[in-house]
């Protein structure tokens, strides 16, 4: 009997990093510290800054891996670069040589000038706070709350979508009716009513975004589930006697993943817009901590002169570049998925 020896190819450290498990670990390493820092940073006191130390190399490494993974689509590369630029700013903000974003120094200083021994690259706002520092610190809250809200909306929307699609019958009728009620509100009306009722804060934005996005996500997942549940492997699972919940999570969920990822990128963009807009309307995140929507809100009344328009331009361009990043990423991902 001949024995066959198979050469196991030696995997380099890069290939090993590209495995799903390593990427998820890296994402968690980047995301969890940032999340904790923004949501509960205050309760850590001086120790808070150390939380972000592991996130900085994780972000850089993730960016490197993303560049390698998306090298076939130029659009995805540009999108990923924009998104990662802000992610990197978010995790490294405490370590950059920036002044305190809430410290008033020299009011109404135009960009590229020096005042009170401090060089203002992007100027200072009407209270004299450094715009550069505020723009960089501002991305933390938008990113954290935007992604958290989208994630929660996805979990809830997908759950109900699977239930409605797989169980059908009464489940479908009831869930679809409730979804229709929420979908028939214009999004802004829904946001305004919910946030006005709950009060303005980050956690309530998550709830409001969930109410606004989950019904649409539920519809997508329901449609995909209706399509997939007639496949043979689902019948096989039913014949094996698997529980409906198990079938939904193990057989159906992995197979509806593809279209959902592209939709998630687009929806991240919408959520970012929504958070900035809501903050501008006074229903979102509250002062004094820097945030793009807040920067627009605060200077919308004072900055209506050509000379001071940089106060509006800086946050407007920042938020636009982040959303452009999400949208290009979604486009690129769609392009890549169509190629396969």
């Amino acid at each position: 009997m001949a024995t066959v020896t198979v050469d196991v190819p030696e995997r380099g450290w890069l290939e090993r990093l590209e495995s799903t498990r390593a990427v998820i670990a890296l994402i968690l390493l980047m995301w969890v510290p940032l999340n904790v820092y923004v949501m509960f940073g205050r309760s850590f006191g001086d120790f808070a800054d150390y939380l972000l130390v592991p996130a900085v190399p994780a972000t850089a490494l993730l960016y490197f891996l993303t560049l390698r993974a998306f090298r076939e689509s130029r659009i995805a590369l540009i999108g990923a670069t924009l998104v990662f630029f802000w992610l990197f700013m978010a995790v490294s903000a405490p370590f950059l040589p920036l002044v305190d974003p809430n410290e008033p120094i020299a009011p109404f200083t135009p960009p590229l000038t020096e005042a009170r021994d401090h060089f203002f690259l992007l100027g200072a706002d009407f209270k004299g706070r450094d715009m550069l520092s505020r723009a960089i610190w501002g991305c933390q809250r938008v990113l954290v709350w935007g992604v958290t809200a989208t994630l929660v909306a996805y979990v809830i929307g997908t759950m109900f979508g699977l239930l409605a699609g797989y169980l059908a019958g009464w489940w479908d009728e009831v869930i679809s009716f409730i979804a229709n009620v929420f979908l028939s509100f214009p999004v802004m009306v829904l946001f305004i009513v919910i946030l006005n009722y709950l009060g303005a804060s980050g956690f309530n934005i998550v709830i409001a975004v969930t109410f606004a996005s989950a019904p649409a996500i539920m519809r997508i997942v329901r449609g995909l589930t209706l399509d997939i549940k007639t496949r043979d492997y689902v019948f096989a699972a039913q014949t094996r006697g698997e529980a409906p919940l198990w079938i939904m999570l193990v057989e159906l969920l992995p197979n509806v993943r593809g279209p959902l990822i592209v939709d998630a990128c687009l929806r991240l963009g919408y959520t970012t817009v929504a958070i900035t807009t809501l903050t501008f309307l006074g229903l979102g995140l509250q002062p004094p901590d820097p945030d793009w929507g807040l920067m627009i809100r605060e200077s919308a009344k004072t900055a209506l002169l050509w000379k001071f328009s940089y106060m509006l331009l800086v946050p407007a361009l920042s938020v636009s570049s982040l959303i452009l990043g999400f949208n290009l990423l979604a486009d690129g991902l769609r392009e890549i998925s169509l190629k396969d």
Partner: peptide
């Protein structure tokens, strides 16, 4: 079309105001 849709209304409003009205 991707570019203009990516800029949220609030930012478009600001850019237009700054350049066409203030500038």
């Amino acid at each position: 079309s991707v570019f203009t849709t990516s800029i949220p209304e609030i930012a478009t409003a600001i850019l237009l105001t700054v350049f066409l009205a203030l500038g």
